[in-house]
Design a protein around this nucleic acid. Sequence first.
DNA 1: TACCATCCGGCAATCGTTTGCGTAAAGTAC
DNA 2: GTACTTTACGCAAACGATTGCCGGATGGTA
Lengths: 344, 344
Amino acid sequence: MGRRPSNKPTSFDIAYLAGVSQPTVSRALRGSKAVSLATRQKIEAIARQLNYTVDKNASSLRSQRSNTLALLFFEDPTPDESNINPFFLSMLGSITRHCAAKGLDLLISFQKLDDDWHKKYQESHRADGLILLGYGDYTLYEARLRQLVRSGTHFVRWGSVDRDTIGATIGSDNFGAGRLVGEHLLARGRRAIAFLGQADSHYPEFQQRHAGLVRAMQTAGLKQDPDLVVDAISSEEIGYAAAKTLLARGKPFDAVFAASDLIAIGALRALGEAGLVVPRDVALVGFDDLPAASHTSPPLTTVMQDMRHAGEALVETVLAQIEDRPTPPPVLPTRLVVRASSGG
Amino acid sequence: MGRRPSNKPTSFDIAYLAGVSQPTVSRALRGSKAVSLATRQKIEAIARQLNYTVDKNASSLRSQRSNTLALLFFEDPTPDESNINPFFLSMLGSITRHCAAKGLDLLISFQKLDDDWHKKYQESHRADGLILLGYGDYTLYEARLRQLVRSGTHFVRWGSVDRDTIGATIGSDNFGAGRLVGEHLLARGRRAIAFLGQADSHYPEFQQRHAGLVRAMQTAGLKQDPDLVVDAISSEEIGYAAAKTLLARGKPFDAVFAASDLIAIGALRALGEAGLVVPRDVALVGFDDLPAASHTSPPLTTVMQDMRHAGEALVETVLAQIEDRPTPPPVLPTRLVVRASSGG
DNA sequence: TACCATCCGGCAATCGTTTGCGTAAAGTAC
DNA sequence: GTACTTTACGCAAACGATTGCCGGATGGTA
């Protein structure tokens, strides 16, 4: 009989029933080789029968290991807080699955940029490591990243890997993808390719996509007209405005590479309103392969990022840091999804 | 000077510096009234200066309260595990925000129906309460819900509230929404309204939406033809197939109410392939207001659920259970979003 | 028989809080 | 000045695991 009649069973209860000491129960259940097969099986049987579960808090407190990762979304301080960037939502599924496969719990939180989350997760032993996702202006949280590195926090970030990056970073091959898009459009006979997206260092991913496009054009002996590059961050409204700006400049173009699907969707509307037919007059390519991309008319050619492996790479990388192992390669391949918007 | 030179500070370190006992530090920091203003402020200042954070594991272990909620997604065992039901993803934002506002951490997990998650979260003190989301066949996890109730677990479920439900449930006013859709279509002169969606008790939400439609038709003196009702669960492919089935039956109809946007999007494709023009020949209404709904052609008339309040209600309800307070009202209003697909 | 390595498992300390109980000092009430 | 409540805080015992250290069996070798 346990000491407390009806409460949750503890390892003491099991120990009593098994006729061993309580530490032996702990060792048996976590598979220590210092306990014989016979007693382990006996203990396991009793544990199963009592419906015993290890108390997470006691375990984490003593072992200083929570087996938990924290997933932090950073949002640009946009007024529209109703919906989340769908791209990262699709990453979420992948991350949770790999956490589950590794026996990790996942804490999730949406952060304003000015919260002091670093403290909250880093020092309270809530999580062993952090996964940082943010689609916004890189420079805004650069300082925080430095602080994390200084304090020895285990973390990994989704972003552009090729720049002089702070901390571990996983990301798609944005440059390669940009080149892929460029080659695709060139192969379809397009020559005057516009680019909608921030082409400066605040958004290094967009910058890389653009650089890939430029490279493809260079290889074909073309130069990109700077007038055909319009800054935009990832939002439908801003994509719409950017396309308007592009049109207003009056320079002819026969293709648009939008740095994200949201931008592309906004641009699609602006082009339509200007009487241009996609893809006949203008070919259009996006980036991300949002669910919505296949439902626009015409359906959007876009770049698919490898979500499945993205989540895996992120989890593996932070785990590798925690356990002081070498980290997996940080660059993930992409795939061009050709649909009607880039011409037939 | 603390006892350990460079490690994370503990409440002992603060106590030493403040010249008080360690329990007093704990009391001061959690705002107990048993500590004077002066000493509290002194302690708070030192804590801030030392960059102290309460150790979550120690705190939870002793207080038996983790201040954490677990969000569990249930998935039908579909082979396509790449993407998550977008409707619930949009709920996620709302839930995390309200958890943050209440100072709660949020654990997230995707569950296969056959996992014994109940045990994992219920007994390991990982979380104080559970939020259950699942769009699938209700009967599949009915037994689990009973078990949760028996074991006294705090949980709340998103679903159909009006049935003889097990445990606390929050949900939209599906019946009212169905009636709204019916009235809208009738007002546009449609008379033969088809329904795509499971109309049996396995999917009580769909059933309620259908019941609302039937009520609206009854009020207008109409009866719904059973041949115009086709079973479907929420997926684009199945919506496509359901619409094909409907067409194959040969009965004329001038409107389709799809029980979800995914179904509607599939149906839209099937109708188009059959040479029917939406909305001229057939009006189409969906449910959920997915992001994609505004990008179909024609854009989809649909029902918007109140995500912001949904998250709030879920969190509040499980919190109320934990703290033994009365729970907030469980039914949330909906709003019809009229777009082109239901006719001009 | 003596010696040493190996295998199992117990003892007790520890992780860093929270909380019940006790009590000196200080404040009322008469 | 006695008696009785507050106020403010200390003491020590939890909470339930993990882990370093140690020692009794066991068995193999010389």
